[in-house]
Write a protein that binds this DNA or RNA. Structure first.
Lengths: 364, 364
DNA sequence: GCAGAAATTTGGAACGTTACAAAATAGGTA
DNA sequence: TACCTATTTTGTAACGTTCCAAATTTCTGC
């Protein structure tokens, strides 16, 4: 209408070229460009080509913000992970990504570093950016009351962990059953003084695993001894930290079920450093079966949680809800596998637990 | 103007409440709400409180898409990482996050799994979502021609790796110098047949490290022998794969500088499995100094690259450019440290290299 | 060559936000 | 009280996109 703009580019002044610029260049209306963008079959092949070409030469970039304004779905799934320095969660994140990819969603990861404040920021930010849904592995000590309003109206799947007061879909391993089987294995190998090491009582996951541990004791008529339970950080250092108390028990423990592999490895290293022959004198079973468990000396027995599968299932559930529009909470429990290696010392006398898997030495 | 809407909520029908709903509820105009949102000092304290309260009760969520439409900056930094299953890059990612946090930016991570196609998708998606800048650790084999147009007009820092034809800011370790010092250490310990293991010639990082290796040989007047150079995948398996050829050399090698720690550990395990006493019979030095290097048996000597610092510096640079609006490419090289442990067997006879650090046994 | 159908294309009018200029209100002072 | 200055508040016009109804073009069969 008014004077025509400067030669090439014809950008909308902000540097970024718009759908209108493209339309101009291709000699069509912006509606047509929009149609091309959405892959509509209405537009004629020749036109489509002309438009596509114009987009390429102008370096057009789709402005998703403008689109969501009109109600378009963003195609982004937010994944909020508590601790990416833990290889277990990394593995889970990879599973999440894989599943997103097949569903044509793009995952944006945020690492909360177990910091509830940061988690709040990050969830809000994802929300503001129009994420279609969230996969959440919540930080420890998350204040549910503050988090909840940020999640309303969008599908959320809590994976691996779950918050006490937050009613969303959940994908988690069968923690209780896994811990029960691991403990039963130790018992069947002759242990009766079995410690439970790692985590804090406030963690729901620990509650589950701990419950499995107690259940196995109960089933074997072994009295529960609270002095065998050690709360500690869930990292290498945490595992190492309990050694002084563990070795100073009046009635010594002969084995330990650890909250996770990282704790188990920390414990194993510290015990070895203080002269205890792990595997022969002391049995250890971890939880999660991270990659490293295969490479420690002795190799660590562990309750295998398929982290990748966990992530994958979570996204599949989320995508299903997204597709159906029905966000009704749903819970999926994934089975675990007891993997017997050298650290529990008793591979030979392994009981007839059909669900246990003893790894061949040559497997590595 | 027309009939008033239904009681509570008064949402804009899409479920999400808007600035207008808030304004209505607080009895002010939407302009005022916008002012409150941006923390302007123009608005009276009483009004601000009323508005804030209205936002809380309505569960208002800021629509960043609408804001960017008006030219607002998004406050998001995209971080595109080639491989999050590699602990080195995870550590770097954590550094990136930390730095983002202090700068009040929110990082969104995307893992490209070394897949250039996925990388393209992910970069485009970040762009579409209005990321203010990008920290990029590019995937191997990235087609620069396709990537370049997606990056125009936004500040980008390549970290750790760099693409041959892509002119952006760069933050990288002093690869050449680190490799030179590590090789010199092996030479000073009496080795003359030193292999270079891992990576492919197309990787710029490997070119740098390889150049340092050759420089050290040259400085010691040791002729270069191409049969000592092994190209292989940069993972555990890659390191293990070279053992057959390595042990079948006419003139055997007595030591190896590896492209990175993961390769070195793979090599170490495979050598140990075939009966070679690493540390005594064969010296190995890795690169990156990942956490695991401290825990292998024997402990792995390595050229320490401070991954976290690398990430931090990259973001700092990016934020500086974002603040100044000057996106002129800049290169930052971070120094490396040679960490001598047991795997190169010669800690005792360590040369007078003032920059080398020999780790005390008690350090662990 | 024409009506009717089918295939394409096209103007707006939103969507939720911000910036700007202008309006309203409050606070002093003569 | 009337006037001037600060202090607050508010319409209005974008921003780049999609959607819908309506307009235009291209095909059919006669």
């Amino acid at each position: 209408m008014n004077a025509r703009m400067d030669g090439q580019g014809t950008k909308g002044r902000g540097g970024r070229s718009t759908i209108v610029d493209v339309a101009h260049r291709a000699g069509v209306s912006k509606s047509t460009v929009s149609l091309v963008l959405s892959g509509s079959s209405l537009v004629a092949e020749a036109t489509r080509e002309r438009v596509t070409e114009a987009m390429a030469t102008l370096g057009y970039i789709y402005h998703r913000g403008a689109a969501t304004l009109r109600g378009a779905k963003s195609g982004v799934i937010g994944m909020v992970i508590n601790d990416l320095s833990n290889p277990f969660f990394v593995e889970m994140a990879i599973g999440i990504e894989e599943a997103c990819q097949v569903g044509a969603y793009i995952p944006f990861i945020a690492n909360t570093v177990e910091n509830p404040v940061r988690q709040l920021q990050v969830v809000r930010s994802m929300r503001e950016h129009g994420a279609a849904g969230l996969v959440l592995s919540p930080a420890l000590g998350t204040p549910v009351a503050e988090l909840k309003p940020l999640l309303s109206g969008m599908p959320v799947v809590q994976v691996m962990r779950r918050l006490a007061g937050l009613k969303t879909s959940i994908v988690a391993p069968e923690n209780k059953d896994g811990a029960r089987r691991a403990t039963a294995h130790l018992i069947a190998s002759g242990h009766r003084r079995i410690a439970f090491v790692g985590g804090f009582d406030s963690m729901v996951v620990r509650q589950d695993r701990f419950a499995g541990y107690r259940l196995a004791l109960e089933e074997a008529d072994i009295p529960f001894d609270a002095s065998l339970v050690f709360e500690t950080m869930t990292n290498y250092a945490g595992g190492g930290a309990v050694v002084p108390q563990l070795t100073n028990l009046r009635e010594p423990a002969t084995a330990a079920l650890c909250f996770n592999d990282v704790v188990a490895i920390g414990l194993m290293r510290a015990l070895a450093a203080s002269g205890v022959a792990v595997g022969r004198e002391f049995g250890i079973i971890g939880f999660d079966d991270i990659e490293e468990a295969r490479h420690t000396v002795p190799a660590l027995s562990s309750v295998a949680v398929n982290a990748r599968a966990l992530g994958t299932r979570a996204v599949q559930l989320l995508m299903r809800q997204l597709a159906s529009g029905d966000f009704e909470p749903e819970t999926i429990l994934c089975p675990t596998t007891l993997v017997i290696r050298a650290s529990c010392g008793t591979a030979l006398s392994a009981p007839s637990n059909s669900e246990a898997r003893t790894e061949a030495k040559s497997k590595d």
